[in-house]
Design a protein around this nucleic acid. Structure first.
Lengths: 314, 314
DNA sequence: ATAAAGATATTGAAACTATCGATAACAGTT
DNA sequence: AACTGTTATCGATAGTTTCAATATCTTTAT
């Protein structure tokens, strides 16, 4: 039994197709087929049921894949251990970031990070929280930045900062004259929200205690705060922005911003990674980098954390 | 990197000698040398410091060995998983037993066990508790039977039975006329003990609350209860036997036996195995086998457990 | 110093294995 | 029946592992 064979098994289990799996393993399909057959021979059991389309794991196969994941993970970690022991900070490092954090946070730390760690080959992907959780557990990304807490057992979280919500309230809006926003004033029905899939939308919904059923005479599907701001200025309602987003506004738009009364509602933004601690030293480096820079931009104190999780039931 | 290479590394780390390690891996020394060099090349680090005699692990090597153990263990477990899933109970199964349990317990279950599980290739070794702990953690044995609790984090215990102590008191002894033994009556100075290394000796010492300093005018080094019994009958003192041992005595000797007042002091006898749960289904089978038979021989109730651990300090 | 002993490293030939490209076999669809 | 998408099989080849013999190195004794 070799680690290579186990990797092949994992690839087939993942892509449910020998040919596709072989491409991802950078070998030809016969090579992969043969190796899997050899492993099956040696274990004297079938791992895959090739009769079903798409291909399926046998009952024993399920268990073998589970165990193979452990072995492959643990063997990947050997390189990490050597690197860490040598004090070497480098190698491939795949980072996922949710869309509502990506454009504002990335400019703050990216340049400094790649300069400080030139040997890290950083690959950044914009992903939803849901995609992140999946890709973290199958090892397609090493770490991610998302709104927390996620309450997921297999994922570790390390808080980077708390980002307050800021109101964007057009001039004719009923709240435009008050001095400070209060959660009590909010009405979910006149707040413009991002499209489904963004956890920031869930944050806002959780913030508004009234579970009012979004009773608007229009449906909005936008993935960008820019659109929300434009629509808001057209008089279609107020909206809420994450603090970092407000720093990019032009001076005119900034006039419409209204802060919350302390403690301001905020989302928790964290580095999250798989509990197996793969590449933990790179994660440490990333956290240090962001920590050092974010302090100059955002205050940490006197906030009230709003969960990004979808409320169940209701 | 292959699992074979990791096994070679573990062997060299264990035997601190390439030649000896190679024999245990059933390859020649050059083969093993080359594979380890290849691994070192690939990891770009030295695992062993070949300058020192005997050979030593480098700092990074220590970590690599630790991780390699995990990987090799987890990969060994794949076969177990397949076997278990198939319901196959068989394969090599190495069992260690401490000397004071071996001769009395083995005859009770061995015949029935090997008959019930003909495909298990059982290898039994007589070992001290200390040796057992070492061999469990390096995988030289799969399971063992010893007096517990051991309070060792990496070892799991599953109690088989509680074996009461029974006094063997010769006719001229000061206690020969009392009806039931009481711990209070014991005096460590007139109890004949096994030689050092037997945890039964520690059991007895822990039983005698008086920490009197074995103030005898002779030193005894015997590993067998037979010797103790003979010496006892010569008038050199009483002794204590584990219950199962008393069943083998001839009718004449049985007259000298004296039970303890309930709750009788007893030693806890358990199956112990490494927490990694390798071969757990074989361990289950063994436990079932012993459980079923021991109930007919020994009572479980109304005993007071005496620890086999050496008391620290004085 | 030098020899001897005990260890690991190197070498070259032989055995073995993984890989590839080509192609066969098979199942499901049209 | 032909087509498509898939996995299995085959033969050649390149690469790897292994072994036996031997070189080299280190330590210890003389």
């Amino acid at each position: 039994m070799t680690i290579t064979q186990l990797k092949y098994v994992l690839a087939v289990a993942e892509y449910q197709n020998f040919t596709v799996a072989s491409e991802h393993c950078f070998v030809t399909q016969p090579t992969l087929s043969m190796q899997i057959q050899k492993l099956e021979d040696q274990l004297e059991t079938k791992i895959f049921n090739r009769n079903k389309k798409p291909i399926q794991l046998t009952e024993i196969g399920e268990k073998i894949v589970e165990q193979a994941k452990i072995i492959v993970d643990e063997s990947n970690r050997i390189n990490d251990i050597v690197d860490q022991q040598k004090g070497f900070i480098g190698g491939d490092f795949k980072l996922g970031i949710i869309p509502t954090i990506m454009p504002t946070l990335l400019p703050i730390f990216l340049k400094s990070f790649i300069k400080k760690y030139p040997k890290i080959n950083l690959k950044i992907e914009e992903l939803t929280t849901e995609e992140i959780i999946k890709k973290l557990s199958d090892g397609h990304i090493d770490v991610a930045i998302a709104a927390t807490p996620l309450e997921n057992e297999s994922i570790k979280e390390r808080v980077l900062y708390y980002e307050p919500f800021v109101g964007f309230i057009p001039s004719e809006h009923r709240l435009s004259n008050i001095k400070e926003l209060d959660v009590e004033n909010l009405n979910i029905d006149d707040i413009l929200l991002l499209e489904d899939g963004h956890c920031f939308k869930e944050n806002v919904i959780n913030l508004c205690s009234t579970l009012g059923s979004k009773n608007q005479n229009f449906q909005l599907q936008s993935g960008s705060f820019d659109t929300l701001i434009k629509l808001s200025k057209e008089g279609l309602g107020m909206t809420l922005l994450p603090y970092l987003q407000t720093l990019d506004l032009n001076d005119n738009d900034k006039k419409y911003l209204k802060e919350f009364k302390k403690p301001a509602p905020a989302r928790e933004v964290s580095l999250i990674y798989h509990k197996s601690h793969l590449k933990i030293h790179l994660i440490d480096a990333l956290k240090d980098s962001i920590d050092g820079l974010i302090r100059g931009v955002i205050a940490f104190n006197n906030v009230k954390i709003i969960s990004p999780l979808q409320k169940k039931g209701a």
